[in-house]
Nucleic acid binder design. Structure first.
Lengths: 144, 144
DNA sequence: TTCCTTGCAAACGATTTGCATTGGA
DNA sequence: TCCAATGCAAATCGTTTGCAAGGAA
């Protein structure tokens, strides 16, 4: 059992929600992925023994209790990834050719700059920033 | 006829694509909106005389010729906005309470910083950045 | 036992498409 | 004129849900 596994187990226990085999499979699959994953992708990776509807339900409760978070992509496809407290704050590199979405963690000083910018923007526009995401579209290493 | 209207007309003409009444309605609606709009929202604003399927088709060709660009949001809803060359480069303030998406244009020096960051990230990750979007989630003025 | 969770199939909602008709250059 | 564009209805596809069966405390 990995650390992530244990942390998720604790979090769910605190809410009296069961950490079942299906939910565990989703978490482990996401923990090993380099970026957000859609229900269909998880279905392919985990194996078709777990029906799609169950995956969707697992993702729904995992999101509800702050374990995973959604990312909305092209063609109306929602991909999920582990929440920041499990995976760390990061941004996304989105390939306009193959559609892949990869995580990127900014060097601390740069992330600080972004954070400061977001704060400034908030006060500039009477908007209270809670979260931010720098999404960079372009061509990934395999598609150059 | 507005300037935007004329610019779109030229762009489409260059591609021998007709700038029809339906397409014109989409452009004018988007030109007057403070943020991206979904097909359903356009349908409501333009009037139900133009069927949804036609709106989708209009949006598809307008996107194909670089006149509008999509933004992917929660619940698999795609919203469109005028392309940057018509509307200017900007970012989005997304309200987690009411779901509204508003445009925000960064002061030039700040936008420069973001641009520089994106460039750095690209070389850091062997990724060729083409576009970037700083999406800020939080609570909008009406939902504070 | 008593709920929570899962499987299956049907239902949904956003978007797409086939086909016959209309309309603009 | 003549092909592109539109309307309508049916089809797709990702996602959700009702209901009965299975499983953990």
């Amino acid at each position: 059992m990995t650390t992530t596994d244990r942390e998720v187990e604790n979090r769910l226990q605190q809410h009296q929600v069961r950490y079942t085999t299906g939910r565990r499979a989703v978490i482990n699959s996401l923990a090993g992925a380099p970026g957000p994953r859609s229900a269909a992708e998880l279905h392919a990776e985990i194996g078709t023994s777990v029906p799609l509807s169950s995956l969707y339900r697992s993702l729904t409760v995992l999101e509800e209790f702050g374990v995973v978070q959604p990312h909305f992509g092209a063609k109306g496809i929602t991909r999920y990834e582990l929440a920041e407290w499990l995976k760390g704050h990061h941004h996304h590199l989105i390939c306009i050719n193959c559609g892949s979405v990869d995580d990127i963690e900014l060097p601390h000083p740069i992330e600080q700059q972004v954070r400061a910018l977001v704060g400034d923007i908030g006060s500039m526009a009477s908007f209270m920033p809670i979260n931010h995401a720098l999404e960079i579209e372009g061509r990934c290493g395999s598609c150059l």
